[in-house]
Simulated assay, not measured.
Amino acid sequence: MLSYHSLLIDDEQQEKSVGCDFLQLHRTIFGPEDNLAEKDIESLVYQIVNKPRNLLLHLQRIFACYQQNRPEQLYAAFVDFFSLLAGKGRSLARRMLNGARGRLNDEQLETLQLYLKGQWIGYLPVNTYSVLAQDLVGTPLLIEKNDNEREDYDYLNLARDYIEYSQLDSAMELLEEGMEKFPSWEDLQAQLLELYRVTDNENRFRAMYASALNNNNDLISGWKQLDHYFNGRKK
């Protein structure tokens, strides 16, 4: 069962809306007990150290740092968040950065924007508040894996996080990318097909199905079933 929550406004709205709107419009992803104006950032950081792959903790940290006007900690939160994404989910990353840009200085904002555009050469600079780097300054961004966090944080897991926060386009984009790299991954195919069906996105399904057939991918039966479903609606 897919669950839907409001997380982020669209790109056009973001260009017009920063400041309090960034927080007020998206609080539904957090529980009613979450008061981000008083959220203990240190507690969030501690939780991230123990569960570095928990997407919600990273989002809460960014919101809390923004609301409490902690620019250095906010920058560090973005660096750690981007290291979690590891180049995936750029749409979500851009939306978060657009919403928080008013709390970052020009250098911080430019660095993060260049990174998202793929134009930053080398590693993102970190500061004393960054927790997912091996050392503090000028080092590769590597996630320190907790004993309870040994599993790879793969395409499927991250896509399911996006689904949880209603980022369905980002989830489909990520799964399609994953399918190109792992064409025989049945669970990934099944999740992608479910999204096509739920979003009624026939055009996207057709494009991916044609590409998979052209590449002779080993497809699960769900592709033919969804093909019949879309064809049947036209009769």
Rank of each mutant, 00 (worst) to 15 (best):
D169F: 14
L92K: 00
N215V: 00
R94I: 00
T128L: 07
K235H: 13
E176A: 10
I9E: 08
K39W: 13
K234Y: 04
L141M: 14
D11L: 11
L36P: 02
Y75V: 04
W223R: 04
Y196W: 13
N201V: 14
M96N: 01
L195I: 05
E176P: 00
N54A: 13
E15L: 07
Q24M: 14
L195H: 03
E164W: 01
L104W: 10
I220Y: 12
Y155S: 01
E173R: 15
L2M: 12
W185H: 14
Q225T: 09
L193T: 07
R197W: 13
R70N: 03
A64W: 04
K181I: 12
H58M: 07
L142A: 03
L124H: 14
Q113W: 01
D200V: 06
G222T: 04
V49N: 08
F63G: 00
Q60I: 11
R103S: 10
R206D: 15
A210N: 14
L192Q: 07
A86V: 08
L55I: 11
F63M: 01
Q119L: 11
L192S: 09
F78C: 11
H58E: 07
H228K: 06
K51F: 15
V18W: 06
Y115P: 02
Y123K: 08
D227S: 13
F78Y: 04
S43P: 06
Y66N: 02
M172R: 14
R53Q: 10
E173T: 11
L57D: 08
Y162C: 07
M1P: 13
A133W: 02
D80I: 09
D34P: 02
D21W: 00
M172F: 12
Q14C: 10
K145D: 13
R53C: 15
